[in-house]
Design a protein around this nucleic acid. Structure first.
Lengths: 348, 348
DNA sequence: TCTTAGCACTCTGGTCTAAAGAGTGCTAAA
DNA sequence: TTTAGCACTCTTTAGACCAGAGTGCTAAGA
């Protein structure tokens, strides 16, 4: 950032003070307030001059002439990148997170739901946990169970990410349980370890070579597999703490709240926002850095979780740009860590 | 209701006019407005006298001295019970509902999700669809699938209400796939057709008689069955259109909105409200008739859906007491009807 | 050259008042 | 029994006013 050249030590202190104070109070910060609350050793007039400079540089904004200053999106960005001191969670809080993950949780869905709840509870923002991305997952097992005394069967599939999906479908009368068992077996030997995306093409031929009859049924089943695993089972979204948005004074405006709630109802937008920063680890997007509609007054912080070194999904939260970044980051890091370890049990 | 004796024809007309006008506009209704908009053939002064009577009878309320009148909960109740003219959906609307249910929907969950979405869309209130009540459901099938190359197994169960639930669990090393197949088979012959509630007691003995080893595993499995079917799979709640609540002018108040959103987060409260009217068919609960906390300014309308003559679940909605009852009722009846027929396919 | 005290000026937010508007209740006449 | 008329009540809106917070600028001091 070119602004760096002009940022001397004192300007940094002033910016940090303003951001911190504004995050705390939500009120525009004046020069007097800074001299009173933060001991920078200079007078209010000096601070005023610095503030004018910072505004010039685009790091601060004034809601109206002769009000205090408020950080701009760039101001937050600079704070997050260069000024922010990490906040450590207390021993009790870390303990609490561990304890929450030590509950008996037997399904991934439950773990993710609990994760969203925990994050929203600890940060008072709206939390999102996204289920494993199945793009690079492989099929672990597939089983077809005839439903007795009906013309239905149940297809169950397990992926390497520990996701289980099922679907009931209708079979014609001439299919016997033995047929289904045979198909199950052939599918398993051929599909195990195959990436979900790749399933369709080449592999299907091998299967056809082994199964000469009921090919339309096999086609149906592979289609269903594709559907339930790739289209529906992929990156399920778990939301918690939507109400928290309402507690933020910046969203006292009716239309803003509606915009954000509408955003939450569009799951694909949520997925896009969460996958916007391709790398792993922590990602912070402030204000207009979020390209999706309706959340340009919000910040989104995400962190990836991984199993055996492989990134498989993301957790994060959404709140006002006036967000308590240091705390949010610590909470997310702690939670992502515990989540990763907790998920280990569902993988081999 | 004792008020009936004092309700002559004209009073009914006046009450109906006030309720309808208030539902439409949301503004207190004055005597002038009624003479202008509804042609009752009498003057405003006469209407005023009638309104005073109706207020005395507890059917109307005045927000403050010399404002117009607003229906009380009793007023709505009388309107709903005695005055309301049913509103017929247009041919196009009915067609639209059919078409929505004619989509390819392969799981009950999907159908119920779609139902909630449809109701909220057609009424602009917050819709709730509740999954089948499992209290009188019986187990249809259970299957245990070993997960290859791990010490895990997958338990899948289907109930007579068409609900499929699954759970992964850990097994000890000395359990062979054949053991699991045998247990599956014994469980099926013993548990098929057994009510979920009754599963625990007597039946377990029969099973033990047939399986002499791995009893702790059998115990684990029946416990899991109980858990996933009775505790978690029962009456799942599908919500849609929470934003709609915000559009209602009566909920412009911050705290009210929070109260209602908090109510929505307590799923057990939702279930209680929905099951509050034990009979089948349509149920309307107005204002304080709802005993749950936070929604005493709301009305809840529910209708049951059934398969093969048996009531298995409910659909409904929540909105302000100033609700467009005639339309809501028509929509719910049409939807419940289509839903029941659509679900038929998941049952035999 | 940088810092600071002083001061005039600006803008918001709350309180107060006045006037307009909507609607009522009561009375007396039809 | 119905209705016209009228005084009265209460809310809502707009405007006026003031206190408070904060700024920008200037000029003097370090």
């Amino acid at each position: 950032m070119r602004t760096d050249e002009r940022m001397d030590e004192r300007k940094k202190q002033v910016l940090a003070a303003i951001v911190q104070d504004y995050i705390l109070t939500g009120e525009p910060v004046g020069s007097r307030t800074i001299t009173r609350r933060y001991n920078l050793g200079v007078s209010a007039a000096t601070i005023r001059n610095e503030m004018a400079d910072l505004e010039e540089m685009g790091l601060l904004e004034q809601p109206y002439t002769s009000a205090g200053r408020v950080p701009s999106d760039y101001g937050y960005r600079y704070y997050v990148d260069c000024l922010m001191a990490p906040e450590r969670l207390t021993r009790e809080e870390v303990e609490y997170v561990y304890q929450r993950y030590n509950q008996k949780m037997l399904e991934i869905e439950q773990v993710l739901e609990e994760t969203a709840r925990l994050v929203s509870e600890m940060t008072a923002y709206t939390a999102v946990a996204m289920g494993p991305n199945q793009d690079h997952a492989v099929l672990e097992q597939v089983q077809i169970v005839p439903v007795q005394a009906t013309n239905k069967a149940l297809l169950v599939a397990i992926t390497s990410t520990g996701i289980v999906e099922h679907r009931i479908f209708t079979i014609s009368d001439n299919i016997t349980p033995e047929d289904l068992a045979r198909i199950s077996q052939v599918l398993n030997t051929n599909l195990q370890g195959i990436a979900l995306e790749a399933m369709q093409r080449a592999v299907l031929k091998d299967i056809y070579r082994e199964i000469t009859e009921h090919r339309s049924l096999v086609k149906l089943i592979t289609d269903l597999l594709q559907q339930i695993l790739v289209l529906e089972g992929n990156e399920k979204v778990y939301l918690d703490g939507i109400i928290n948005i309402l507690s933020q004074p910046e969203f006292k405006d009716w239309d803003k709240v509606k915009e954000i709630l509408a955003f939450f109802e569009r799951e694909d937008s949520l997925r896009r926002i969460f996958n916007a920063s391709p790398g792993g680890g922590l990602a912070i997007r402030i204000g207009q850095e979020n390209k999706e509609e309706g959340i340009d007054k919000c910040s989104v912080v995400t962190i990836s979780y991984a199993v055996e070194g492989k990134i498989i999904g993301k957790v994060g939260l959404l709140g006002p740009t006036r967000m308590h970044y240091p705390r949010v980051i610590s909470v997310l890091q702690c939670v992502a860590d515990s989540l990763s370890r907790s998920l280990q049990q569902f993988y081999r």
